[in-house]
Design a protein around this nucleic acid. Structure first.
Lengths: 183, 183
DNA sequence: GTTCCCATGTAACCCGTTACATGATTTT
DNA sequence: AAAATCATGTAACGGGTTACATGGGAAC
């Protein structure tokens, strides 16, 4: 069976499995803090996936009335949902790491730019990467103390981002060195 | 004015500027060989952008009859088109390098997997990265001799991919070492 | 004689985004 | 009095994809 749904559906399902009893609102926040760096999704999309998951009976939801805040739905994975998640995790990953870089695209056409403009393109890229770098370091610091499997996964995916950013910063150095050589 | 169009439109426009007189079919092939690694686009999309670019008068097309092959349209950038390209290149790049990784997403939920399955996930990732690595090396080798600005841009974007892949391969080593530590 | 290359296109789908709406409660 | 938090949702758009259609000439 296995209902052909996008990976995003499993992303949300996985979150619910990790954080049982969360509301849609909370899941949006958690998604923003956890896998946003390698799987960004918007609020609207999450709510749509919650509807889909409910229809699929992969999650069940419960209405919770609150005194000092609006009523909310809380979600938890069903047995079928946990099974679907496990099945999906077990299937070989189609190495579809989709990557689109506006910087590289512009750089590719940089022969239409003044050398100064190219330098400023690289400078912007550098500061964006540095910001990223700091974010990843912050995530790792925050999770450093915690020793749950979940925290470890978070640390390691942050490390992936950090190593990537570092390599790209070194690439900028290489390119800048090359640009100076022939000017 | 500057007509709010997606970056993909400029990608195709840039290609036509780089390879004047090419047909849609050829542009599809060139896109596949050149910026596909950081800005993949499908055949259908390219044809759609060609229509849009023609409507915008950023490119002009000419019908060419052939004896031993079907008739084709050939494209070249107009003055307005080259201007639009330059304008776009000059505007500050919104550092929107969108990245989505199916591997990391699965890895993030790996606590639902046997350690063996995690290892095989990493192994698959490794071989995908190695394949990528070889592709980037091949591109750089092919362009090594050529000394045009175009070839250089190709070499440097390939280097970006190569450095990224290398860093990620090293990340796999790090992670595997950590996994062994506590098994 | 089947398969590959050239060449352009149509149809349908849907994932994901942005912008906006609503309204109560708590904090500043 | 204003702003942030909690909480869920609607509407509209469009970028990008996959699958499929067509048809002649060349190559194996």
């Amino acid at each position: 069976m296995a209902a052909k749904v996008p990976d995003t559906t499993y992303a949300v399902l996985g979150l619910i499995d990790k954080v049982p009893g969360a509301s849609g609102y909370e899941l949006v926040a958690v998604a923003g803090r956890s896998f946003a760096h390698f799987w960004p999704i918007s609020q609207t999309l999450i709510y749509r996936e919650l509807d889909r998951l409910t229809d699929l009976r992969w999650v069940a939801r419960t209405r919770v009335e609150q005194l000092h805040a609006p009523s909310k739905w809380t979600y938890h994975a069903t047995t079928a949902g946990r099974q679907a998640l496990a099945d999906w995790l077990a299937t070989p990953t189609p190495a579809t790491s989709s990557f689109r870089s506006g910087v590289l695209l512009r750089f590719f056409f940089a022969y239409r730019l003044h050398p100064d403009q190219v330098r400023s393109l690289l400078a912007d890229y550098r500061s964006a990467l540095q910001t990223q770098q700091e974010e990843f370091v912050a995530i790792m610091d925050k999770l450093a103390a915690v020793s749950t499997p979940t925290a470890r996964a978070g640390r390691l995916t942050a490390l992936h981002g950090l190593r990537t950013a570092e390599a790209r910063l070194r690439w900028i150095e290489e390119v800048e060195a090359q640009l100076e050589d022939d000017s």
